[in-house]
């Protein structure tokens, strides 16, 4: 059998398929009433929640940095937190842009699959990044929150603060080591699929 024969078999099959295939209309009517589940719904929701939390937090930090601008011991940690918060906002915004603007099954295969895979890759990378950012910036968070909410100067407890800062850096380093030593299989798969898509273009 050669390709021409394969082509003929494919075309001949149409007639029998026309007879054998049945659309389950009753079931469709039932299913279509239900809301069609979207795989991206969860992702969109989590991105909107991230934005909803990050905007007031960033605004609070901007105000705090302005207020404490001359007091370096407070303005520097607050500025670091502000950078993380702005990074989170940009990231969530980009994910939503991919979800709403770039991912439509009615677009070309390459474009849609690339956007889906990018989204998956960024999601995984963000998760990995958070594992490092959270312990690394926990000290800055504690300093700013203690001063702004409870009006406590954590620098008074310098020994405890130094221990906290040192241990959070160690935790972050250990996490980086683990992430490098055991790279996420899904990230690797995502990257190789993106490479495959790029090779087709």
């Amino acid at each position: 059998m050669d390709f021409q024969e394969l082509n003929n078999i494919w075309n001949r099959a149409d007639e029998s398929l026309e007879t054998n295939l049945k659309i389950n209309k009753a079931m469709f009517k039932e299913v279509s009433i239900q809301k069609v589940k979207s795989k991206l719904y969860e992702l969109k929701l989590s991105s909107w929640i991230e934005i909803a939390f990050n905007i007031p937090f960033a605004l609070f930090l901007i105000g705090y940095v302005i207020d404490q601008f001359t007091i370096i011991k407070y303005s520097v940690p607050a500025f670091l937190l502000l950078l993380i918060s702005l990074f989170g906002l940009t990231f969530s915004g980009y994910k939503l842009y991919l979800c709403y603007r770039r991912i439509h099954a009615s677009q070309s295969l390459i474009e849609t699959q690339k956007s889906i895979e990018k989204l998956k890759y960024y999601e995984l990378m963000e998760k990995n990044l958070l594992y490092v950012i959270i312990p690394l910036f926990s000290t800055a968070f504690l300093i700013v929150m203690a001063q702004s909410i409870l009006n406590i100067d954590l620098y008074q407890y310098s020994n405890w603060l130094a221990l906290q800062a040192a241990s959070s850096v160690i935790v972050a380093l250990i996490i980086v080591f683990i992430l490098k030593k055991f790279p996420n299989k899904k990230i690797q798969e995502s990257l190789s699929f993106l490479k495959e898509i790029n090779a087709i273009e």
Binding site: A13, S16, N20, L21, K22, N24, V31
Partner: peptide, 10 residues
């Protein structure tokens, strides 16, 4: 939603 009779498949 789409039923087909596999017995009859070519």
């Amino acid at each position: 939603l789409l039923n087909w009779d596999t017995q009859k498949e070519d």
